Amino acid sequence: MESRRVLMEHLQNVMPVHDDSAPLNTGVLRPTTEDLLKECPRFRVLVIGQSGVGKSTLISQTFGVKQAVAEDDEPGEADIGKELISLQNDRFVLHDSKGFEPAEHNNYSSVKTFVENRKHQPNIKDQLHAVWLCFRTPLVSHGECLMERSAERFLREDIGVIGDIPTIVVFTKYDRLLVSLQLQRVSNPGSAAEEYLEKHCIKPIQEFTGNPGLTHLTVSCEDGEHRQGLEKLIELTYEKVNAAFGSQLGIPSPVSVVTQMAQRVSPRLKVEGSIAVGKQRYWRALTSGANFWDHTILECLSVIHTDIVSVWNFNDPSQYLYSTEFRELMMNLVGTIDSSAPRLPRTDGTSKICESGASLLTLPFKAGLGLVQWVHEAYRRLWVT
């Protein structure tokens, strides 16, 4: 922690503030994420839930933002058609439905119309990528019910409108149930909570929808010992998004990648996203050299660095992570990761890779494959770190 503090203080002293939103990469060496984000710049999620179920906290903690608001936000009624975004995380767009409140006669049909319209958008960036159906875990002993009648009607009659859009039922505020069971001095509150959830939440949803396989999970967003479920929620969402939008010839779907970019609770998905993006272009280039021809090592590492930072999507408004100073720090750290790893000769910013006798371009094919294997093993070791 102390070393990280010193590093950050050093960065703040030496790094310039950048006004642009992304670094410029010229020529044929362009970051893979640049092409993916042109096709789908944001993960688009619809969150349906009655007021008070904890939607705002769920979104805030999953995507690491204070709040998501419309660009032309004005006081008044929530509008499902508004695109809610956040300056702290530009990789997701939220559509919020207040659920099916008893007094909201028009909201029921507006949800169906909105979903239908999004399903028929020609471009994937405009389609819905996921739907979260949020219900507060009810305390039956307090007279609470799982949902209002209009929500039951939607699940019974119109859940099919969602179709094959990745959908997850989220039971929020699960911590309230655990605390209630503890106050009742239940001997095994964890096991009792699972039985309670099965009886009062899961089975009713299955009966309403007629779908015993509908994905569901519990979430507690409050700080403390009962906070849980956020990482599992985003990982389940990613799995369903990846299955729905798929990949072609081993190339990751832009929707899958932007889902990994948008979330800020699962480091595992960030690592996997970085590797998937790297495999698409750079690993194949290790043996062919087609994309790296006549470029310096610094130029090659620059685009790889850009892709990694883009996937991790830190809240970095001053663009410190894209600065020359930070790139140089990363270059110097490479040599300390694995002392037994093969080394490329250090070059300055003007030396071309093809001028080095030990460069990737002049390596025999078998040697190139060996380097690919080393990179793969290095990734496996570093994942644990």
Rank of each mutant, 00 (worst) to 15 (best):
K173P: 01
T57F: 14
L230A: 05
E9R: 13
T32G: 05
I124P: 09
Q127K: 15
Q121G: 06
L181I: 11
V14I: 14
P204C: 02
L46N: 01
A341E: 09
F114P: 07
Q228I: 08
W312A: 01
I304T: 08
G52W: 10
R264A: 06
T287E: 13
H129T: 01
L360Q: 05
T209A: 05
C221A: 13
I168M: 06
N89M: 04
N117H: 15
A367F: 08
G246L: 07
E231T: 13
R91L: 03
H129P: 03
I85L: 04
E195S: 13
K112R: 15
V161P: 04
L133A: 00
V69I: 14
V140R: 11
D19C: 07
T324V: 12
E2I: 04
S274Y: 00
R30V: 14
Q12K: 15
L382W: 15
S356Y: 02
H10N: 08
V111W: 04
E225P: 08
S351Y: 06
T324I: 10
G224N: 06
V241Q: 01
N13C: 05
E198I: 05
D175K: 00
P31R: 00
Y196S: 02
H10P: 00
R185E: 13
R149L: 10
G190H: 14
R343F: 14
S323T: 10
L46H: 03
